[in-house]
Design a protein around this nucleic acid. Structure first.
Length: 258
DNA sequence: ATAAAGTCCTGAAAGC
DNA sequence: TGCTTTCAGGACTTTA
């Protein structure tokens, strides 16, 4: 689930919590902690006030009032919820922060592929230096430069977080379909006009998805068709192709994406 | 049993 | 030839 738009939604969840104080930290499953023990997390985090949360790609950074930053990654199944402390825990609530004793912030994740860490400034820098510019704000010239430096398929390049940060499997397929670009096209042989289309499609898809807090499962989008038993292109009605690229299921329309 | 929207690591292949 | 980049596959994890 979590690609850039979902993580942006989680950032809003935190933003809506304002500058509340973390009054309690409960680690329900220490398996999600990366490089920090439950004991140290509680010791460092409790009593701290939340700063303004920010996002880069699929990473969410939550500053805690002058101490290390709480860093979330949501893997394939993670999410962040804010509710009343009285709300019973869900099955996969792994970490629960109580805010001002009146709100409960819950990091939920079925599979523990990624997790939560406590990162000082240099650790945050180490995360950021592995990431390309954020997909939501990258300019067309920079996108073109970074993609055209790649030898492999354009989808592989879009998926690579060190090239552009934030796009996942669903978004890449959606964007390529809108840009009339076949996923296996070598990135360096994508022409200027197609890069223009790609950048425009990326902006439109991302802005709509960010508003929705997810890649919306609309029938008019490619994404809305991929679970169909015999998926057809929303634009031309022909059967969609499905294959594997960069280790991921890839769906495209061979007619619209030559 | 298979596959799933995440990343990381490895070894091999490809490109310059 | 040798270095770097890219790819494919597996690992991690849990459940439908």
């Amino acid at each position: 689930m979590p690609e850039l738009p979902d993580v942006e939604g989680f950032r809003r969840v935190l933003s809506d919590c304002g500058r509340r104080c973390v009054t309690d930290i409960e680690v329900c499953d220490a398996g999600v902690l990366r490089g920090v023990t439950a004991k140290r997390l509680r010791k460092e985090g409790e009593g701290r006030r939340l700063g303004e949360a920010w996002r880069h790609g699929k990473w969410l950074f939550v500053p805690l009032d002058g101490c290390p930053t709480l860093v979330f990654h949501f893997g394939m199944t993670g999410s962040l919820w804010c509710c009343s402390p009285d709300e019973p825990f869900a099955g996969h609530d792994r970490l629960v922060l109580t805010l001002d004793d009146t709100r409960s912030l819950r990091y939920r994740d079925q599979r523990k592929l990624q997790g939560v860490q406590l990162a000082d400034e240099s650790a945050v820098d180490r995360i950021l230096e592995r990431l390309g510019p954020d997909a939501l704000t990258v300019g067309r010239a920079e996108l073109t430069d970074r993609l055209s430096a790649r030898r492999g398929a354009v989808k592989s390049a879009l998926m690579d977080q060190s090239v552009i940060a934030g796009l996942g499997n669903l978004l890449c397929d959606e964007i390529l379909w809108r840009a009339h670009l076949a996923p296996r096209t070598p990135a360096r042989s994508v022409g200027e006009a197609a890069y223009r289309r790609l950048h425009a499609a990326m902006g439109r898809v991302l802005r709509t998805s960010v508003r929705a807090g997810c890649v919306p499962p609309r029938r008019s989008w490619l994404t809305g068709r991929r679970e169909d038993s015999e998926p057809r292109c929303p634009r031309c009605g022909r059967p969609l192709c499905s294959g594997r690229l960069a280790g991921r299921r890839t769906v495209w329309c061979s007619h619209c994406q030559p």
